[in-house]
Design a binder for these strands. Structure first.
Lengths: 163, 163
DNA sequence: ATGCAAATGTTATAATGTTGCAAATTTCCC
DNA sequence: GGGAAATTTGCAACATTATAACATTTGCAT
C-alpha cells in the first residue's frame, strides 16, 4: 500500500508543515544557505495547504503577521526557496507550492485538481525518461522540464456525481 | 530522413505562414467558426517566426498596422485561436505560438531554446502515454497537459562552443 | 426590416512581477 | 573585537500581463 496522494486525503497537515520546515533547515544547513526568518515564514505559509499560493497571497499573509512587506520581499524569498529546491512555481497558475521531495534532485510533475485546487507532486521516472528520449531524438539539450497536469483528483471525481 | 525541427533550421518561412493561414481557414470553415480579419491578422503575426510572441507584442504590431487596438482585442483573438487549436499559450513564457499540428487533436510538447528563443512543438505519444499512465496510477482524471522543456537547441549548442 | 447573437471598441483596473538604490545585517578575515 | 566585504532587507517606483464592465457595431436569419 503506497499511502500516496496525501493532498487529496484527510491527513494531519501539521505534520507536513513540521516536516517540511525541518527538512528545509537541514538542507539549508548542508548547503550553508541562510534560511532567515522571513524565508522560513514564507515557506511555512506556502506549506499551509496543498493548494498553490500566489505571491500576493503570501504578501497578504505576511501583512496579517504585522510584517509590512513589499512585493520584492516575497519574490526574493520565493527565489531563494526555489533555488534551494524547497518550493516549486506552477507556471500555469502563477503560484507556488512546497516541494514534496526537497533535496532529492527530481523532476517534478504536478497533478492539479481544477475542482479543489490541491496539487500532488509526483516523481515519475518513466515520464522523465520519455521526455528525455524525445528531447534526445531532436538533439535538444534538456535543461528544465515544466510538466503540469490539470484535471480532477479522485475525491472530486466522486463529488461531482452527487452535488 | 525526418526533416524535423524546422524552427531550428533555415527554411522558407513564408511557406509556414501561408500554410498555417490556409489550414486555419479550412479549420474555421469546417467548424463554422469565424476567422475575422483581426483574428486572422493576429494569427499571421503569431506565425511571423517560431519564437513565441507576447500579447503586448501582438498589440504593438497591430499598432504598426494602424490598428489602434486595446488589450482585450488581442486577448480575445488569442482566446479564439486557442479555442480552435490554432495557437498555443506557453505558460512558462506568458507567450503564444502558432500550433504546428492544427486540427490534429494532439498533446503539445514544446522544446524551448533559451538561447535563440525558438520553439519546436512535438507530438510524442510515448510521453503522453507515460503521463497518462502516471495520472491513472493516482486515479487522476487528466484534462490538460502543460509540458514545456527549456534547454538548448542543436544549433545553439554548437554556437556556444566558439563565440 | 428587424431582431438576436456574436464580435469589437473603449475605459478602467486588477494581478503579477521587476529595477534600482539605500540601509541594515551577517560573515569573514585579521 | 574591528572593519571591510558580501548578503539580505526595506522601500519606492514602475513594468508587464490580463481581465471586467459596458457600449457599439456587425453578421445573419427570419
Amino acid at each position: 500500500m503506497p499511502a500516496r496522494a496525501l493532498p487529496y486525503r484527510p491527513h494531519n497537515h501539521d505534520a507536513c508543515v513540521t516536516q517540511a520546515l525541518a527538512d528545509a533547515r537541514d538542507i539549508c544547513q548542508q548547503r550553508s544557505a541562510r534560511l532567515t526568518p522571513t524565508r522560513e515564514r514564507v515557506l511555512e505559509l506556502i506549506w499551509q495547504s496543498h493548494k498553490p499560493l500566489g505571491a500576493y497571497d503570501v504578501l497578504a499573509q505576511l501583512a496579517e503577521d504585522g510584517h509590512n512587506a513589499a512585493p520584492p520581499t516575497v519574490y526574493r524569498a520565493l527565489d531563494f526557496l526555489q533555488q534551494n529546491g524547497l518550493v516549486h512555481r506552477i507556471a500555469s497558475l502563477n503560484a507556488f507550492i512546497g516541494c514534496a521531495h526537497a533535496g532529492e534532485h527530481h523532476t517534478g510533475m504536478f497533478l492539479i485538481c481544477r475542482a479543489c485546487g490541491n496539487v500532488l507532486e509526483l516523481t515519475a521516472p518513466s515520464v522523465s525518461g520519455a521526455v528525455q528520449a524525445a528531447a534526445d531524438a531532436e538533439s535538444f539539450e534538456l535543461d528544465d522540464i515544466t510538466l503540469e497536469i490539470a484535471g480532477l483528483c479522485p475525491r472530486c471525481q466522486k463529488d461531482s456525481g452527487h452535488e
